[in-house]
């Protein structure tokens, strides 16, 4: 569903992403771990078509994103690190607009149901989102993804800044989407959450994918140690 083949992005002499190859199948959650500047967000931006690759290909549902920028968007939902909504519109209105942009015409009841599925309290449905917390906005983002019935979900550090409860709720929502056969690629710093929800985990550094694991085959302490070693934080490794 989500595939990259030798995907490379250079800015002059600087290589932001170096020959990344990975695949996320339907019903899988792939977590990309790495420090800032590792190339995680670049990967997501290339998969969204926001950036053009220097070489290699990014495929969504078998279609090259670079040459099918608009049509591949039909299959993707995206939740950025700090998902922002229109503050003067209510949650329902935001969902209605963004799903409308994605080509969906949904009745009010469906919009409410989607927000409910995404975990938003019903008393917040008709409140302006200007006063929403980040967790509440992320839930609207999930509702947008649900409305789109996206086959692929790209998340760029969605849990950063969320309190543990909100982060936990968010993880559960992703598990739900996984069970609906959505292919999920998530860039994150959160090793604990990655281990909890991912089917596959990759560790990136300086634009390269250095390590890949099947989540069930690695324990959290080993993952943490491997991560720290990979990042050259040897003094912190056990």
């Amino acid at each position: 569903m989500i595939t990259t083949n030798n995907l490379t992005k250079k800015y002059g002499d600087f290589t932001a992403l170096n020959q990344l190859s990975l695949t996320v199948n339907p019903g899988e959650i792939y977590c990309l771990l790495g420090a800032n500047g590792a190339g995680k967000s670049t990967t997501i931006n290339l998969l969204l078509g926001f950036l053009k690759p220097t070489s290699g290909v990014a495929l969504i549902n078998g279609k090259d994103v670079a040459t099918n920028t608009i049509s591949t968007k039909k299959d993707i939902a995206y939740i950025p690190e700090n998902l922002m909504l229109y503050p003067t519109l209510t949650a329902v209105e935001n969902l209605d607009y963004f799903s409308g942009i994605g080509g969906q015409k949904l009745p009010k009841e469906t919009l409410e149901s989607l927000l409910s599925q995404a975990g938003l309290q019903s008393d917040a449905f008709y409140k302006r989102t200007g006063a929403f917390s980040k967790g509440m906005r992320q839930k609207v983002g999930i509702a947008i993804a649900l409305a789109k019935e996206a086959k692929a979900l790209l998340l760029d550090e969605p849990t950063s800044g969320l309190d543990p409860k909100a982060s936990n709720e968010f993880g559960r929502l992703l598990q739900g989407l996984k069970q609906n056969n959505v292919a999920i690629l998530m860039a994150t710093h959160d090793l604990f959450r990655a281990k909890e929800i991912a089917t596959n985990i990759g560790i990136m550094k300086n634009g390269k994918l250095l390590e890949q694991f099947v989540s069930d085959e690695i324990s959290l302490p080993v993952l943490e140690e491997t991560y720290l070693k990979t990042m050259n934080y040897k003094e912190l490794a056990v």
């Binding site: 993707i76 922002m84 799903s99 942009i101 080509g103 983002g141 790209l154």
Partner: peptide, 14 residues
């Protein structure tokens, strides 16, 4: 500035 543009683009906004 609000960051809604990236969400719009990801939704396939023309």
């Amino acid at each position: 500035e609000m960051g809604t543009m990236s969400l719009l683009k990801s939704q396939g906004a023309v």
